[in-house]
Design a protein around this nucleic acid. Structure first.
Lengths: 158, 158
DNA sequence: TTAAAAATCGCCCGAAAGTATGAGTGGAAA
DNA sequence: TTTCCACTCATACTTTCGGGCGATTTTTAA
């Protein structure tokens, strides 16, 4: 298994080795045959140079790893963002809304009645009414639904 | 100009040519010097084979344009989606809410009072009350603020 | 054409919401 | 220390909501 793997991996090198041996053998044979000529060696040398150069080229082409060019493509992905709520502190201070009022506003937006809000905050119903009234004034709203709308538009509540 | 250009362009080839000539000359000289040895030719052949192969490799590497393998890397760009509202038709039909009721619901969510909604839809206040009442029943809400919350959660209104 | 669904409107009543006004308390800043 | 402000609570009153009826008229679909 491992031997086979090695063979596969370095097949090019093995191939090169065998071809080299065969070529040398061939040249030697040619040498013996054409030794009679005067300038045989020169021709033979030139031929061998060309052949081995070609071999080198082939080998290089075979062995070189292709250069990897990374092309960065900007892919626009529109994400249904879980748009985390960012509280608009600027508006909050600008409108002069108090912390308690904001609490009431949040609970109002969650659909609680004034009585429920009062119970939740451990204060009287009248207190909640006062907070609500002040809120409406500050938000320039005349109804709780309107106040909620405006507050959401101003990012005071999610 | 043109000649110079050609020279620059095929500098590698020219270089190869000259080195080839020089090598042949060197080998010839070596041949003359070491002809005395018995197996000189074999050594010389092997050396030349190695040299020319190396030359071929160098040449190939020099001349071939690098194979470029493009790897496309997707760079994700997250874009704040102006997340357009997708109406939840399934819930709409499931709850059996009528078109008119939805209209009322939308206006309610925008902060309008029943009277204002009635005026806007050219119907009586009582009609709006009826629609609202039916809406609360279908949405299982006991207040308009609660109905709005639930409707938003169900993507019936933006 | 006919039955079902949707839309319209009315009335009553109680509950909730909202307005206006006044006032007490406690903490923080001037 | 005093003043200011947020928070608290109350009372009285008005308006709006919401529930619970019932009823008529369109519209729509079978």
């Amino acid at each position: 298994m491992m031997i086979r793997n090695l063979f596969v991996k370095h097949r090019s090198i093995l191939l090169y080795g065998t071809s080299l041996a065969m070529l040398l053998f061939l040249l030697r044979w040619l040498e013996l045959r054409y030794i009679i000529f005067d300038h045989a060696l020169d021709i033979y040398m030139g031929a061998s140079a060309v052949i081995f150069t070609a071999l080198g080229i082939w080998l290089a082409l075979k062995l070189t790893k292709p250069k990897i060019e990374r092309v960065v493509v900007e892919k626009k992905i529109y994400i249904e963002k879980t748009r985390e709520f960012v509280f608009n502190e600027a508006q909050f201070t600008l409108l002069g809304i108090s912390k308690r009022e904001l609490e009431v506003l949040q609970l109002m937006a969650e659909g609680f009645s004034n009585a429920e809000i009062a119970a939740r905050l451990f204060v009287s119903l009248n207190t909640i009414k006062t907070h609500a009234s002040n809120l409406f004034m500050k938000l320039n709203a005349s109804r709780r639904t309107q106040a909620i709308e405006k507050a959401k538009a101003l990012s005071l509540i999610p």
